[in-house]
Design a protein around this nucleic acid. Structure first.
Lengths: 265, 265
DNA sequence: CCTACAAGG
DNA sequence: CCTTATAGG
C-alpha cells in the first residue's frame, strides 16, 4: 500500500504557523507533494524540514517567495528531477519528480493564469510544453515498467461538476474551454487517468480549493483543481481518494485541502 | 489644568488592533499628539476617528503608509496648521500645529535618519529648517501672549542619560554629536525647555522608546526621544510628567510609550 | 521585530 | 482575503 497526498500549502511558513505541522505529524501518508511552498530549503521552518522520519526535497522558484514545489517521502527517493526540460519553466518552482520503488511521483504547480493577460499566455505555454513531457513520461514509464502519478495543483477544473458556480466562471481562468479541452487531451489522447474522479464519478465536487474571500469555504463554493493524474495501471490500483476538507476545517492552514489517495501497489 | 499626551503609535491601524482604542478611552488627557499614524483620515479606524468627545485632525504624508501626525483634542482647535512653511517637509506628515485656548500645541515627527546615508542628510535639512521655525514660533507666541509646546518624536536623545547604551551609540543616528548639539541650541539659544527633564533632572531615563528587536523592552534598553518641548512659561506650569510605560506593558500597542504632562494653565 | 505597500493568487 | 517581498523604522 502506498498513500500519497497532495496539498497546495499557500506558503509553507504561514501554513506551519497555522497547523500544517500538526497535520503532517498526524498523516499516515507515505508521500506528500506540496505546492506553493514559497520558500527555499533554508526558509522552510525547521519543524517541517527536520521532522522525524521524512525526507524532504524542495524545488523553489528563482523568483523569491513565489511558487515552489516539494516532495516529502518516508523513503529516500532513488532519483530526483527538478523541472521537465523546459528552458522557461524549470527554474519556476513548478515541477519536481522523484522515483520511489516502482512508482514515479511528481509534484506539479501549474500556473494559475488570468484571462486575457500575459499570465494566461504563460499558462498556455506551460500547458503546451508540459503535455509534450507527459507523452514522453508515459512512454518512459512503460519502457521501465513503472507507474507514474502527477500530483498537484493543476489550476484547471475539468468539468462542470468540478466547481460550484460553473456558469459564472466560463470566462474565468481555470475553467476556460481551451483549458478544459487540454485536460481532456491529457486523459483521452495521452492516456492518463483522473484518479479521484474515477473512484467517485458522481459530482458535484468534492472541491479542493475555496477562495479566502467572502464565505466561500463555509458555503462550499469551491473548485476541484488539485488532482492525482496517474498512468492507467496505477489508477486502477487506487482504493480510496479523500479530500481532507475536515483537516483544513479544524485548523485551516491553506485555501486548498489535501487530496489523499491510497494505492494498492 | 491641561493634560497633554504625546505618543508615536507606529501605525494607528495596528495600534488600534492592539489596545490603543482602550488606552484612548481611559486617558484623562485633554490633548493627544500622535506620530507615525501611517494612514489618511479615511484609513484611520472608525473606533479612533469617531470616538465620542474627541476632535481629530490628521496630517498624513503624501507618501502612502509613511509618517503622518495627528492631534486629538476635546475642544475644537481655533486654528490648524499643517507643516511649518517648508517646501520639502510640509507634505511629509511630520508637523501639525493647533491653537487651543491660550496654548499652541504641535505634533512633531522628526525624521529618524540613518548615519551616513541620504536619510541623515534629510534629517539635517529638517533640523535646520525647523530650528528657524522654532525661533519664529517663539517670537509669535510672545507677541500673542500664548504658550507653545511641541510634542512628539524628536528622534534625538539629548544626553547620555537619555539612552541606556550611550557608549555603543555614539555613531548611531539619534545620538550623533551634531544632533545633540542641535537640541542644545533649541534649549539654550532658542529658549525652549525640555519639560520632563526639568521636572526629573535625574537620569537615567525615563525612556520612551524600546526597539522591538531582542528583549529591549524587558531590559529597559530604551531611548528618551519623545518630548514635550515648551516655551519657558508653560514649562514652569508643568506639574507632572509621566512616561506611560505601564500602559504599553499591559497591552503594548507601539514600540513607543505615551508621555503625558499636566500643565497648570 | 514591527509597520504599511505591492504584486501574485 | 490571503501570501511573501520590500522599504522604512
Amino acid at each position: 500500500m502506498l498513500t500519497v497526498t497532495t496539498a497546495n500549502v499557500n506558503g509553507i511558513r504561514a501554513a506551519a504557523r497555522k497547523g500544517f505541522v500538526e497535520w503532517l505529524s498526524d498523516t499516515t501518508a507515505d508521500v506528500v507533494c506540496l505546492q506553493e511552498v514559497r520558500a527555499t530549503d533554508e526558509q522552510v521552518p525547521v519543524e517541517v524540514r527536520d521532522v522525524d522520519g521524512w525526507h524532504m526535497i524542495v524545488a523553489p522558484a528563482a523568483d523569491k517567495g513565489r511558487a515552489g514545489v516539494a516532495v516529502l517521502s518516508r523513503e529516500t527517493p532513488a532519483r530526483v528531477q527538478v523541472g521537465f526540460g523546459s528552458e522557461e519553466f524549470d527554474v519556476s518552482g513548478r515541477y519536481l519528480e522523484v522515483d520511489l520503488p516502482g512508482v514515479t511521483v511528481a509534484s506539479l504547480y501549474l500556473p494559475s493564469g488570468e484571462t486575457g493577460t500575459p499570465r494566461q499566455d504563460q499558462k498556455e505555454r506551460f500547458m503546451a510544453e508540459f503535455a509534450e513531457y507527459l507523452v514522453a513520461l508515459r512512454k518512459r514509464a512503460e519502457a521501465d515498467n513503472r507507474h507514474v502519478v502527477i500530483c498537484g495543483d493543476w489550476n484547471i477544473a475539468h468539468q462542470e461538476i468540478d466547481l460550484k458556480n460553473w456558469k459564472a466562471n466560463k470566462k474565468t481562468a481555470g475553467f476556460l474551454p481551451e483549458e478544459r479541452e487540454w485536460m481532456t487531451r491529457v486523459f483521452d489522447d495521452i492516456g492518463y487517468v483522473d484518479v479521484a474522479r474515477r473512484l467517485h464519478p458522481e459530482g458535484p465536487g468534492p472541491y479542493s480549493w475555496w477562495s479566502y474571500r467572502g464565505r466561500a469555504f463555509d458555503n462550499d463554493a469551491g473548485w476541484r483543481i488539485d488532482y492525482h493524474i496517474a498512468t492507467p495501471g496505477l489508477a486502477e490500483a487506487a482504493k480510496t481518494a479523500v479530500v481532507e476538507r475536515a483537516a483544513t476545517h479544524d485548523a485551516r492552514w491553506s485555501d486548498h485541502a489535501p487530496v489523499t489517495v491510497t494505492y494498492a501497489v
